[in-house]
């Protein structure tokens, strides 16, 4: 058995239009590396250069947000279902604030456990 991964519309250009793909891996990090070997570029849309989960996506294992499961270190088992959704967020927040937030994300620890929350 493999791990089923649900791909949002905006990332289906990497999967040949497929809504669901399969992959394998013991952790989310391994799974994304495995997927990237067949769907080149997908990982880069989900993981920052600092090896943290990108601020603009939500990733779930079964019914849990992976940010509460160790982010990229989240453990996976055969038969798990992984869902990727583009985060829905925004607001009247100005450009300077958005840029500061992007820097904050880039500076986040490599384990990705830090979740940026705006207040």
């Amino acid at each position: 058995m493999a791990i089923e991964v649900r791909i949002p519309t905006i990332l289906r250009s990497y999967t040949g239009g497929a809504k669901v793909v399969e992959g394998s891996g013991d952790t989310l990090n391994d799974l994304l590396t495995d997927l990237d070997s067949r769907h080149a570029g997908l990982r880069g849309r989900l993981v920052t250069e600092a090896d943290a989960l990108h601020r603009f996506v939500n990733v779930y294992v079964n019914d849990e947000d992976v940010r509460f499961l160790g982010a990229l270190d989240a453990k996976l088992n055969d038969g798990d279902s992984v869902t990727i959704l583009p985060a829905v967020a925004g607001g009247a927040f100005g450009f300077a604030a958005a840029a500061a937030m992007a820097q904050h994300v880039a500076a986040a620890p490599a384990d990705g456990r830090t979740r940026v929350t705006a207040s």
């Binding site: 905006i10 603009f56 583009p86 985060a87 925004g90 009247a92 927040f93 958005a98």
Partner: peptide, 20 residues
């Protein structure tokens, strides 16, 4: 938007992930 115009901010644009 509660104090500004109804036009997408930079933040809105950078997050917009549903092209349809």
């Amino acid at each position: 938007h509660t104090a500004t115009e109804a036009y997408p901010s930079r933040t809105d644009i950078s997050f917009a992930g549903e092209p349809g």
